[in-house]
Design a binder for these strands. Structure first.
Length: 577
DNA sequence: CGTGAGCACT
């Protein structure tokens, strides 16, 4: 009989203590201890000291006990203890690791991003002969991807003799997490070709890939597949992935449709995905209405729901509403504000021009500001041309230890702020700093999907096979813009060059290349969807507005922050961004 | 006794 409750466990423990010294009951005693250990290790909520105490009191723990302990540690808040325990087991215990041991250890490495330790385990696995166990192989794939080593994951995957749906799904999901959504989609297509059954886990992962990259066509096909084969059709996780895919691919109507179809299977995640999607598409009032409906159904918002709500306020410029949500969210919804929430509200205040209030909020908030938050504020200073504040904040940002590649973003922003004020010397200084540290800024890139294939354009790109036609199209556009007396926003070029060169630079921004390609490749009057990795510059934004009018095209552009729907010369954001 | 999974700040 297994133990199923804490009271049973305590009872058993009392019994063990009572009969502890009775030699005749030795086997019984052992058995009870073992049961108690298993229960306490598996039911513990993170604190494993009790389980460990019992384990250490076992006269001769076997490998099952060791594995159970490792599993418990790997799922605890401090998974590194699994590795520590493993090392002590290697040194002090007669038990050897087996094929059950490794998945737990690899999980710990995955959670902690311990590449080096993961590789060492891989070595042990190879030597011990467990390397062809499918569970171990899947754990290896997951570990490598979680450590950002998708190349090694591919190697494990390629060497597998018998791949099943889990092998493929692990690989696809890992690629998505490694910011390789296009490879993930390719994997998925190969999987279909191979005739491997697709399940809801696969579907969720490939939809995440579509969401990241804006592959609406692929996403729609996956949706069809889900309906045809009824793969988790009513599961909330599949619906959420579909909603998120549609919103991030710029198709808020389809997202709404999915959300309406699952009326009776909604959970906090699907509500949040929809609220967040509506907010990013400028349907801020609808987002807040949904938030209220959700509460009427007694579904409690979580941290991300509140982020979505605040981001609706931010995109709409509702300063006092957003500030009130932030101040009352703990009392009303039981959610303590995190850095994301402060980030939204700081952006909300700052973008509305309340720079002092935004700065004060950062300084008074109970958690430490991260670089993203300072950058948000500095960006707003640039927008509102408050150079004194910007320079003061830049000094502060620079004083923070810069050690990750993420700091590239800080230096780029700092350089841009200096450049926009004509301080070329200071700009050059940040440039040198980047070179010295070997930081390479990620270039502007835009993606557009044509007939199910995603094309990516980098700023100044001439590598595309149809490059010539694209540049010819841009020339044609330029002529038409001249007729419209369009003035390029040369001040957006933050280089010390003449106006002609500035105009040239502007005309090669990645979203314009993608747009020209879209105009060539799609039928008249159809929508064009573009996904950009950074924030669009003012010139590109104005450019898209004009193009939407003269070419009679709806253009839906996703930038790093939100969506812009251009139609007939106007943008859904009403130029508030 | 073990493998893969949904929504957040620039």
């Amino acid at each position: 009989m297994e133990i199923t409750s804490m009271s049973e466990a305590l009872q058993l423990h009392a019994q063990i203590l009572k009969s502890g010294r009775n030699q005749r009951n030795h086997h019984r005693h052992q058995h009870d201890l073992s049961k108690l250990f298993t229960f306490s290790a598996l039911s513990s909520n993170g604190d494993l000291t009790y389980a460990r105490l019992i384990l250490d009191s076992l006269p001769s723990p076997n490998s099952f006990h060791c594995n159970t302990m490792i599993r418990a540690y790997s799922r605890s808040p401090d998974p590194v203890k699994a590795l520590h325990f493993f090392l002590s087991m290697l040194r002090n215990s007669p038990n050897r690791p087996d094929k059950f041991t490794y998945p737990f250890l690899l999980k710990s490495c995955a959670l902690l991003g311990l590449t080096h330790e993961g590789k060492q385990l891989h070595g042990l696995i190879f030597k011990s002969g467990f390397g062809s166990d499918r569970y171990v192989e899947h754990s290896l794939i997951h570990m490598y991807c979680a450590c950002g080593e998708s190349g090694h994951a591919y190697k494990v995957f390629d060497k597998m003799l018998a791949r099943n749906v889990i092998s493929w799904s692990s690989m696809i999901d890992g690629l998505v997490d490694n910011d390789r959504p296009l490879e993930a989609i390719k994997m998925f297509e190969k999987m279909l070709e191979d005739g491997v059954e697709v399940n809801e886990v696969t579907v969720v992962s490939v939809l995440r890939a579509c969401a990241k990259t804006g592959a609406l066509g692929v996403g729609r096909r996956v949706h069809e597949l889900v309906k045809e084969r009824t793969i988790g059709l009513k599961k909330a996780n599949v619906s959420t992935a579909l909603i998120d895919m549609y919103t991030k691919c710029g198709c808020i109507e389809s997202a709404r449709l999915v959300f309406n179809e699952i009326k009776f299977n909604r959970d906090v995640f699907s509500w949040t995905a929809t609220i967040s999607g509506l907010a990013s598409h400028e349907n801020c009032q609808e987002a807040i209405d949904l938030f209220n409906q959700m509460q009427e159904l007694s579904i409690n918002p979580d941290e991300r729901t509140m982020t979505a709500v605040l981001s609706a306020c931010r995109n709409a410029g509702w300063v006092s509403e957003g500030y009130t949500y932030l101040k009352t969210m703990h009392k009303k919804y039981g959610v303590w504000p995190t850095i994301q929430h402060y980030g939204c509200v700081v952006d909300l205040l700052a973008r509305a021009g309340h720079l002092s209030d935004a700065e004060e909020l950062i300084r008074k908030m109970p958690i430490e500001a991260d670089r993203v938050l300072w950058r948000t504020l500095i960006w707003a200073c640039k927008v509102h041309k408050d150079m004194n504040r910007a320079e003061r904040l830049i000094k502060h940002l620079e004083s923070l230890k810069m050690d990750s590649n993420d700091d590239c973003g800080s230096l780029v922003l700092i350089g841009n702020v200096y450049a926009s004020a004509g301080k070329w010397h200071d700009k050059a200084r940040t440039r040198e700093l980047m070179n010295k540290r070997g930081l390479v800024k990620s270039p502007g890139s835009s993606k557009i999907e044509i007939d199910g294939a995603v094309h990516e354009f980098i700023v100044g790109d001439s590598g595309h096979s149809e490059s010539e036609r694209i540049y010819a199209k841009l020339d044609e556009i330029e002529e038409k813009l001249k007729e419209e007396e369009y003035q390029p926003k040369l001040y957006e070029v933050l280089l010390e060059v003449d106006d002609e060169e500035k105009a040239f630079q502007l005309s090669h921004h990645s979203e314009k290349l993608a747009l020209a390609f879209g105009l060539i490749k799609t039928s008249p009057r159809t929508e064009i969807r573009i996904v950009k990795n950074l924030r669009s510059c003012e010139d590109c934004h104005a450019f898209m507005k004009v193009i939407s009018k003269i070419y009679e095209r709806d253009i839906i552009m996703r930038d790093r922050i939100r969506f812009h729907h251009f139609r007939n010369g106007e943008c859904s954001c009403k130029d508030y961004w």
